[in-house]
């Protein structure tokens, strides 16, 4: 039997007295594209960080492909690509040097070829030899997306990837992450770009799942109003 790509049971994470994620249960099948939406402070970023093994749950279990992240963290990180708010790039190095560094850390075969192929696909080949501190916010974001895809991870976790990107770049991103039967979990405030990629929509509020539905069930035209009512109600 194939294991779920992501399986969380009773997952909680607290920061001091504040519960960012509270007793969350979640199962995501391999290849599924999930969009996380919710107001600020709803726990989207914390959930992405938990799924990426960047932080540990306060309680509960989290498994990726059937393996517990608590005991197989290092091994599982090879199978996860993560895009966070910050680009995770060294300012004093060029984009290419940053990507070569991460390629080595992930033991990517034919690293230069892989970097240039992805860069051409994302139309950022001309940026690779520029130092990161000379890149704009949007350009850094695109280099950072490339970084997350370098090792061709079967799970891709994206925390507001559309923030700071123009419409063309967002469309390119959706195209790029949607292929290869990759499991994608993406948090966003932009319902339109989120829904263009998602098969399933999860709404978080105060660290809890308050709605978990297939994309097809939703009426796109009324979603903005429905979402407002859901998170404020």
């Amino acid at each position: 039997m194939e294991h779920p790509a992501i399986e969380a049971r009773g997952l909680s994470r607290s920061y001091g007295r504040v519960k960012a994620i509270s007793n969350l249960g979640l199962t995501i099948a391999p290849g599924e594209k999930v969009v996380l939406i919710g107001p600020n402070g709803s726990g989207k970023t914390t959930l992405i960080k938990l799924l990426s093994t960047l932080i540990r749950p306060t309680s509960g279990t989290l498994k990726l492909f059937g393996k517990d992240t608590a005991s197989h963290g290092a091994q599982l990180r090879r199978r996860v690509g993560v895009l966070l708010h910050e680009p995770l790039l060294y300012n004093r190095l060029t984009a290419l040097e940053n990507l070569q560094f991460y390629s080595k850390m992930f033991n990517v075969p034919n690293e230069d070829r892989r970097i240039w192929e992805l860069a051409e696909e994302m139309e950022i080949g001309d940026l690779l030899k520029t130092r990161v501190d000379s890149l704009s916010h949007g350009q850094r974001k695109r280099v950072s997306i490339l970084r997350a895809l370098l090792h061709d991870p079967p799970i891709l976790l994206l925390d507001e990837p559309d923030a700071g990107l123009d419409q063309t770049a967002v469309q390119g991103l959706v195209k790029l992450v949607s292929r290869n039967g990759r499991t994608v979990v993406m948090s966003t405030h932009n319902l339109e770009s989120g829904l263009s990629m998602a098969q399933r929509v999860i709404v978080l509020k105060k660290g809890k799942v308050i709605m978990d539905v297939d994309r097809e069930v939703l009426d796109g035209a009324n979603l903005d109003l429905g979402y407002e009512a859901l998170v404020t109600g």
């Binding site: 990426s52 960047l54 290092a74 910050e86 680009p87 995770l88 850390m105």
Partner: peptide, 18 residues
């Protein structure tokens, strides 16, 4: 502190090693 700029420490922590 070099690792704090642009969240690079998170980048290191996301690499597949202990």
């Amino acid at each position: 502190s070099t690792e704090q700029e642009n969240g690079c420490l998170d980048g290191l922590m996301l690499c597949p090693h202990g």
